[in-house]
Simulated assay, not measured.
Amino acid sequence: MAFRDMLGGLPRKPVPLIAAGVVLAVGVFGVTWWMGRQAFETTDNAFVQADTVAVAPQIDGYVTEVLVSDNAVVAAGQVLARIDAAAIEAKLAQAEANAQALEAAVRAVDDKARLEEAMIAQRAAGLDSARAEAQLAQAEMDRYDRLSREGWVSAQRVQTVKAGARQAQAAVAQAQATLEAERRTAEALGSARAQTLAQAAGARASVEQARIDLSRTEIRAPVAGVVGARAVRPGQYVRPGATLMSIVPVGQAYVVANFKETQVARLSIGQSVEIRADAFGGQTLTGRIESFAPATGAEFALIPVENAVGNFTKIAQRLPVRIAVDDGQSLAGALRPGLSIQVKVDVRQTPGPTFAEALAAPGHQAHAR
């Protein structure tokens, strides 16, 4: 009885007052939630990405040095590793010697060509001399022929003069043949020179290729960033195309948020985005919508979904949206590819093309940095 008396002595709150408070709280929460839904589109299906570059050798050989460690910060052009260059240096020396020999062969052909020019001039002079001798012999033969008809010279003498004239004509023919042979020799030298020049050009190309291969024994960073997934060690034999390590340009990370197709109608290029990463606790970053993917994520899957089946169930698809992180933020450089992100897009303004407009005219997808 005493306990009941004590309870009876406590003040009691009216039930209607409590119910009104609950209704008011639910109403405030509902209004806040509805206003938030009207002003923002959110998703936690978002991740940090970066244009990671795989580093691979362009020649084969044994690795002599690895000059970087895991997670090392590297600059563009920095030497990451070296491949044994002895064999390539030998190839370069051989190519240079071959090129020098062929260049000397070109000079030898040029010397022969100059000699042939002199020989052609000499043969041409000999032909002129033979023609002059033939003209003289022909004139003498004509004179002796007249004298023979008048009885002043013997027939034997006429025969001797005629033989001399025939010899002079034969000498002219021989001189012409010799001159033609020299000219053909000069033409052959021209063809030989062209062939040798082509061989010399090929040899110089081999020298240049050997020099390029020698420069490739030093594997350099194609971009600035942080080394990751380093799989190369000294003494390892590597082949062209094999991934030795990756370089992540962490200062150029961006966010890819996968929004439902029921959300993208309110999105537009340039809208402000609040970015929250679990790794940063309660700290946030800001960014802007940069572009929309040309297809849903399912279309880029290794095994695309086949919807033309009898047991089809409609599921809201996800569309990747690229979000650029605003510059000048201290946490921007701390974003690492693969981090989970929550994004909240302010859809109260449409500073650029909407999703439908951007996809209808891809050129409108301007970068919104």
Score class of each variant (00 low, 15 high):
4 R>G: 05
5 D>R: 13
15 V>M: 03
18 I>F: 01
33 W>F: 09
34 W>H: 04
41 E>P: 06
43 T>G: 09
51 D>A: 15
59 I>F: 02
62 Y>A: 11
66 V>W: 07
67 L>D: 03
70 D>N: 15
70 D>P: 08
71 N>D: 07
72 A>M: 10
77 G>F: 04
97 A>M: 10
99 A>P: 02
105 A>N: 12
107 R>E: 05
109 V>P: 01
116 E>C: 15
118 A>N: 13
118 A>F: 06
134 A>I: 03
136 L>T: 15
144 Y>V: 05
147 L>F: 08
155 A>P: 01
156 Q>P: 01
160 T>L: 09
167 Q>K: 12
175 A>L: 01
183 R>H: 09
187 E>C: 05
187 E>P: 00
196 T>M: 15
216 R>Y: 12
219 I>M: 09
221 A>D: 07
224 A>I: 09
231 A>V: 07
233 R>D: 14
238 V>F: 01
251 G>M: 12
257 A>D: 02
261 E>T: 11
264 V>P: 00
264 V>N: 01
268 S>F: 02
273 V>R: 00
277 A>T: 08
278 D>Q: 04
280 F>H: 05
287 G>H: 00
289 I>H: 03
290 E>A: 08
290 E>G: 04
307 N>A: 15
308 A>F: 09
309 V>A: 14
335 L>N: 05
335 L>V: 06
342 Q>M: 05
342 Q>G: 06
362 P>Y: 04
366 A>D: 11
367 H>K: 15
